[in-house]
């Protein structure tokens, strides 16, 4: 497979995984800056190892036991449900009904909470360890789910999904190390909007395939489905903005 084809196939997994890595990296950074790096880095390493064991076990079972069409159906349904949640939240944020997800606010809140708890010298920081462990394990599980979902077809799809997730991890973690502060420059709501549409599209595509449908042009239908989701979601944003009176968006954020 040439690098351009690989890059195109890996993009959905890259974008989806990047969102999860941003969340985990923000928390690990907040813990590291306030309480020192030893415990959160150890928490990250242990969570990564636990994740590898879980994926190693479940991954083999998924390939050998479950029939492909059943896996596609289940994963398609999960992707659709997962994607709809993201898409709905992103639309409500764009319309001003829900406050924009603010990574900087989360970072400052983490800082304040951790400083409040205090820390004695020469004591292993279990709080820092557990906070980092929990964040990395949870977000890592979501990345694993994304990789399994996008790579469900096996072969090229799986390779591309794995490459996309690894590159996203290196990219976001590298960005975090370089910046040493919250990743506020990543417009998270735009990412969630796009990723939500992509997850929904793959969900519809795979679920229909599991039911025996052959899409015209096979995977070439996916961009068309993505465009349909984006267009309808943007239409929903416009409808919501028109529905709420002038200035109501700001007022609604206080609910």
């Amino acid at each position: 497979m040439d690098p351009i084809t690989l890059a195109i196939h890996a993009t959905p997994a890259f974008v989806a995984s990047a969102v999860e890595f941003v969340e985990a990296t923000t928390i690990v950074l907040a813990v590291g800056v306030t309480r020192g790096w030893r415990a959160p880095l150890l928490g990250t390493v242990v969570a990564t190892a636990a994740l590898a064991i879980i994926i190693g076990t479940l991954g083999v079972a998924l390939v050998t036991v479950v029939p492909e069409h059943l896996l596609k159906g289940v994963v398609g349904a999960l992707l659709l449900l997962f994607g709809l949640r993201w898409l709905r939240k992103a639309v409500l944020r764009f319309a001003g009904i829900v406050a924009i997800h603010d990574e900087e606010l989360i970072y400052l809140r983490e800082l304040a909470e951790l400083r409040q708890q205090g820390l004695r010298k020469n004591e292993f920081d279990w709080v820092g360890f557990l906070v980092a462990f929990k964040a990395v394990l949870l977000e890592g599980t979501e990345v694993a789910f994304i990789v399994i979902a996008f790579g469900a077809a096996g072969g090229v799809a799986l390779t591309s999904a794995v490459v996309g997730a690894i590159v996203a991890g290196i990219f976001v973690i590298g960005l975090g190390i370089a910046l040493q502060k919250p990743l506020t420059m990543v417009p998270e709501n735009w990412l969630k909007f796009g990723v939500g549409a992509m997850l929904c599209s793959f969900g519809v595509f795979w679920f229909a395939e599991a039911l025996g449908m052959t899409w015209p042009g096979d995977a070439l239908s996916i961009p068309l489905i993505v465009v349909a989701f984006l267009a309808v979601s943007w239409l929903a944003v416009r409808i919501l903005k028109a529905l709420l009176p002038q200035g109501a968006q700001i007022e609604a954020r206080n609910f």
Binding site: L80, V204, F207, G212, V232, A236, L240, L244, E251
Partner: peptide, 30 residues
């Protein structure tokens, strides 16, 4: 062979209907 398009149409209608309802609820609350 048309089940995918039917599913897509149903989900798109669902998105608009659900968000429209969420908008109405937000307006009523305000």
């Amino acid at each position: 062979q048309i089940v995918g398009w039917a599913l897509l149409a149903m989900v798109l209608v669902l998105i608009v209907a659900n968000l429209y309802r969420a908008g109405l609820v937000a307006r009523a609350r305000m």
